[in-house]
Amino acid sequence: MGEAEQRVAPLVAVVDDDDAARISLVRLLEVAGYAARGFDTGSDFLASADVAALSCVVSDLQMPGVSGLDLQKALLARGVQVPMVFVTGFGTVAAGVQAMRDGAVDFLEKPADPGALLEAVERAVAKRATLAARAEASADVQRRVVLLTARERQVFEGVVQGLANKQIAAQLGIALKTVKVHRGRVMQKMEADSVADLVRFAEALGL
């Protein structure tokens, strides 16, 4: 089986209480090569969708019960970073601004231009891939950093701050030789080949 055959189509959820609009969007996405699944309410989506597997959510803004913004807030509250594209026939500037502030990729008026919608979904899928890669890198670094002792963690933080060994020794009140030993262990446990690697790891940790 070739690489193209093995590639899994990005999964996009379409949430819209308008049956015709939802079915139309699902078909458009499927023709474009996406795996699409429709939901007629926000509550149904939150109850049954495998949100961790989603690459993008296309949602109406104004819906009975759980609105598009409510849906977005619910996902954020769960810690799920799935980029959203909103489509609405009753949008307001305030709602659009709020949606974008909370991470929406685009805010389109109904009936959404097919080209504009697919372009927005493409950007959302790319954003999701980037977020997933960052999360994976962060988890990998977390796995390494937990191996450090408290003192090694202090030396690690000093190194990524750009401090010289002498400065770290003075700051921690330990011998220069001890700092060098800890630094060597940090490099080994963090599987780093250079200080640049340690800085990159620190960035992944948000330090």
Rank of each mutant, 00 (worst) to 15 (best):
L76S: 13
R185C: 09
V195P: 04
A164N: 02
R101W: 02
A36C: 07
V85R: 00
V195W: 06
G33T: 05
M187R: 11
H182P: 08
E119S: 14
R22F: 05
V159Y: 01
F107S: 04
R144L: 15
R7Q: 14
G158R: 01
T92W: 04
V31T: 12
A95R: 07
G115T: 08
T41I: 04
D70Q: 08
R143Y: 07
L108Y: 11
V141G: 03
D193L: 06
A129P: 03
V179F: 10
F201V: 04
R128V: 06
E119R: 15
G173A: 08
V14G: 00
G206N: 06
T130H: 15
A137F: 13
A4S: 13
S55V: 00
V58R: 03
A202S: 15
A112E: 02
A120T: 01
P64N: 08
Q81I: 10
F45N: 06
K110D: 02
A95G: 10
A9F: 05
A95E: 14
G115N: 13
K166C: 10
A124H: 05
T41M: 09
S55D: 07
A196I: 07
H182T: 13
T178G: 08
A35D: 14
G115P: 03
A21W: 09
I23K: 14
V105D: 04
G206V: 10
K110F: 11
R101H: 11
V121D: 03
V58A: 04
E3P: 00
L148G: 10
P10R: 12
